[in-house]
Nucleic acid binder design. Sequence first.
RNA 1: GGGGAUGUGGCGGAAUAGGUAGACGCAUCGGACUUAAAAUCCGGUGAUGGAAACAUCGUAAGGGUUCAAGUCCCUUCAUCCCCACCA
Length: 796
Amino acid sequence: MSYNHLEIEKKWQEYWQKHQTFYTDVHDFSKPKYYALDMFPYPSGVGLHAGHPEGYTATDIICRKKRMEGYNVLHPMGFDSFGLPAEQYAIATGNHPASFTEKNIETFRQQLKMLGFSYDWSKEISTCDPSFYKWTQWIFKKLFEANLAKCIEMPVNWCEALGTVLANDEVIDGKSERGNHPVVRKMMKQWVIDIVAYAEKLLEGLEEIDWPESTKEMQRNWIGKSQGAIIHFKVNNSVEQFDVFSTRPDTLFGATFCVLAPEHPLVDTITTQEYRDAVKEYKEYASLKSDIERNDTTKEKTGVFTGAYAINPVNQKLIPIWISDYVLLSYGSGAVMAVPAHDQRDYEFAKTFHLDIIPVIEGDISTQANSNDGVYINSEFLNGMHKEQAISAMIEYLQQRKLGYPKVNYRLREWIFARQRYWGEPIPVILVDGREYVTLKDEDLPLILPELKDYSPLNGQSPLSQASQWLHVSIDGKKGIRETSTMPGSAGSSWYFLRYIDPNNEHALADYDLLKHWLPVDLYIGGPEHAVGHLLYARMWNHFLYDQGVVPVKEPFKKLIHQGMILGANGIKMGKRFPEFVVDPNVIVKEYGADTLRIYEMFMGPLEASKPWNDQGVEASRKWLERVYRLVMEMDKLTDENDHKLDYIYNYTVKKVSEDIEQLSLNTAISQMMIFINECYKQDKIYKEYILNFIKMLSCFAPHLGEEMYHHLTNEATIAYQPWPEYDESKLVLEEIEIVIQINGKLRGKFKGSPNEQEDTLKQIALQHPSIQSYIEGKEIKKMFVIKGRVINIVV
RNA sequence: GGGGAUGUGGCGGAAUAGGUAGACGCAUCGGACUUAAAAUCCGGUGAUGGAAACAUCGUAAGGGUUCAAGUCCCUUCAUCCCCACCA
């Protein structure tokens, strides 16, 4: 007989819902808290994919264990529901995106429930819900008041096809992340958030959180802190001057030319008559280049001479000023001093245009790798010094003469915070008299999206610009016009985890005392694709809200895990390219059951690794669950008397499974449960207590089956809050263990002995062991190593 | 170009305070049950040689440290991910 998973799973899902089994009273501070968070999904039209249940099952397992251990567990779910697909649906059909979104959310909600996750659905949030985005707008207002949100003229990533501006992390290789449309750079007035102001805090915060080192490193690289100096260069025969940023001011004596970005404001002013045409031509050439071409670092350096010369501030030498697109306006000061002897890019440029190369550090120039050792030459007061010494000497020199100053630069850019779209949070700002930006009053929030006839973008303007009634307002008798851009998708997701704690609060984004109790999130699981986007933005908002006294902790996510990707059976990412290898979790649940899918995905391999799908593995998981079910439900072997035969394996299993779940080593936890069941099958009688405790552990992985079997044996209402089993350390000591004899490190024999045997006794047993006699006969024993309870190594 | 990670049977993967490599599962082979098949239960299964006992080899490749290396160190190769002319 095999168990009917459809019947059992339906039965328990209904039971949990009816009895609100997983409702969390957030005000109950009597128990220790545990807050486990999943990255909430974007409710697309196609429903869950095979990757969703992976991370979600992992958090569910740990939550179920924590509940049994007596924690007050917060395990919520919600929906990141603003976004492009719903908007495109609205454009195509003329229907409001909200109904489409709600329909998709309903599908997702049903699928998530079907998988047996122990979410507290009373905490559900949705970012497109006005009662939620009221607070997204409120945070924006706070940022505006703190001068961290502002509207500035800046170069942006403009996507013509989508009719909107995109953030840097939404652009991949010069194409839009969504839709893969070309993206160009364009100057526009934009709402931005000054995330750079938090660069240092975001770097420091990384030190105190338990995140994968690779993710921390990615964030560090994205922030890209570099220490150096600003150096002022005067233009010869001119009143003009410009600044360069350099991390190696110590090489100033080796600067043989300067390079400005083609868009640098000074270019037109300083270019001499003779070079005007060439410069103009080059500027056009550079502006037409797509990001892809500009990113191709293998290409030849290009550039033109401006005819102007700069004066090297340390030795008054005249050095030519060039322009080239390898210098970016958006980083540093948009100008560099070129030291071809010690910088690869400058070297290539100098070689291409036959410019001077003057080494200032001893060593082999051609390798370009000599800049860290060797003493300084050709550098007057730096001669004979080493790097660190030379850097401080040069900075001191520049500072004393007001020729420059130390400076820290970040690669991180402003977070572009506006999209010319409809389906996002309206930015709660009014432009009054065409000059001054005024935010809405708190009592006027949320600013709700108006209904439109047509959701298409108009001439690169947000669809909202057509809502004339909504658009025009009057403030204190002055004419005002609302901002028509909306916030990006990353807005709501930057703080949603705070709202779960207090989702219905109408007076604050969440009650401070509740936040104080529940934060930080103890465990956050989600895909590695969010390593720098969402995870950096969410940290920044949280740091900001901490500074505002709204949130009690600096870092929101104490521990972070990335689940790996579930690949198709062909070992390639599931997707449009190989539709025949795409797995629909719905189908798996219907055919094999949610418990099977959960067990299978957890048993596939380490949570963090990418793993290929295997249908036979699903089948095997199902068979194993049936094997457990048969043992418990059919075989009349359970007794109330312990014959102690399973003592060791049972206690070891409890220990191993408990520890493995803590470390999210879920594949090995399942493997140990399999070993336990295999042992049980070898017994005539099984101590019922052991099986009951085994079911508790299994119920974290396969909750429906767990409930069913536990209910069958005990008549308890639910297993969800039964105490987690403990193990008896004394039962883990075996009376007899296998000890290995090695000769020169090679396995030559084994014997059984007590783990507590004295070293000398062990040595004697080993030396007398028959299978090693031929190896030691007539040889001098030089040394013996005894590793208690494991190995004896004889060196001859 | 920079950063990060990974590399173990036919397959997914176990094993790190250095101490029996290949747990567990898949696949496969055999046995039991069956008229038969499926399902189930039990057992074998890294490679090579051998009837067997056993021997030799074996964790991407090469070197090293050590009584002992999948694990530590050096060099090389391959794959994947992220960033990328960041001065």
